[in-house]
Simulated assay, not measured.
Amino acid sequence: MKLSMIRWTRCTAIGALALFLLGVIFWGGFNTAMEATNTLPFCISCHEMRDNVYQEYRGSVHEANASGVRATCPDCHVPRDWLPKVVRKIQASRELYHWVVGTIDTREKFLARRPVLAGHVWDAMKRTDSRECRNCHDFHSMQLADQARFAADRHDRALNAGGTCIDCHKGISHELPPLPPVLSEDRYDPEYAEEIMETCAGCHGDKGQGTPDGEYPRLAGLDAHYIVRQLENFKNRKRINIPMIPYANERELPGEDVQ
């Protein structure tokens, strides 16, 4: 009887130890595999990402900047906390399906789907209060006095109004998808609009990306009505900005051009 009890105890202990070791091996393998998918090389291992959004990311402020801090794909698109990370990985299985069936396997297909894809990302970031942005950025840690006046004003307003990063920073590392024109076609002159944009691009960048130091703010992704309101404020001197004075007047920027 005692011998049987000893054997049972030993078998139980060995079984428990084996299960524990198997659990450690499984967890280690699972975690290693999950982290392997959280790297830039993995994210751009398919040509859809490598040939499209990655090319836009290169040279952006998230890839290279004065501080030398780099944010890559997983930093911006994968949560750090374990449970949200697992949920995101499960959601990614849909992306594998679309990769297999070739939903965006050409440049033309990608561009056609881009507004929808971008909308999904923006909506997700809005729901989580720009969670991945806040891995590095925090309103309460910002020294607004050290920021450019425009940036400080926008951050202060966003903080007080409950805004979130993605409200203003759409397209910060990738090109914005084509948006419908603000004006109806009978009032929209593409050639003249391009001429106006060339003037703006002289300071704000050819894609409205602004300058890294914030001296010339980013225009890409801002609400069209907000831009109109600010241009009108420049014209009537409700908002003073020295570089804008030569441009924000009725001769250089008549009302119809603002609209």
Rank of each mutant, 00 (worst) to 15 (best):
E232L: 06
K238M: 13
S184T: 05
T32Q: 07
Y57F: 08
H137K: 12
Y57I: 02
G162W: 11
L117C: 08
Y54E: 06
E132N: 09
G102M: 12
I240R: 15
A248T: 09
L183M: 10
R229N: 14
R127K: 15
M1R: 05
L111N: 06
G15Q: 00
A71C: 07
P180I: 07
D223Q: 15
M125V: 06
T12S: 02
R50S: 07
L111G: 05
L159T: 06
T211I: 02
K85P: 11
L21C: 03
R218N: 00
L176S: 07
R10K: 15
V101M: 13
V78S: 07
H225E: 13
Y247S: 01
Y188F: 13
A224E: 14
C200R: 00
H204C: 01
E132P: 08
A152V: 14
V228H: 09
K2S: 11
T12V: 07
G208C: 01
N233M: 14
S184I: 12
P254M: 02
H155K: 11
A92S: 07
S67I: 03
N249H: 10
R154P: 08
D129L: 09
C200S: 03
E195D: 10
V101E: 14
A18N: 04
A151T: 03
G59H: 02
W122E: 09
E198L: 03
D153K: 15
Y54S: 05
S93M: 15
H62E: 06
L222Q: 10
G210Y: 00
P190V: 03
E56D: 12
I172A: 08
C133F: 14
S130V: 07
V53Q: 06
I90Y: 09
H47E: 12
H120W: 07
E195N: 11
G208A: 00
F42K: 01
T164D: 07
Q91N: 13
A145L: 10
G59Q: 01
E194F: 11
C43S: 14
V116E: 09
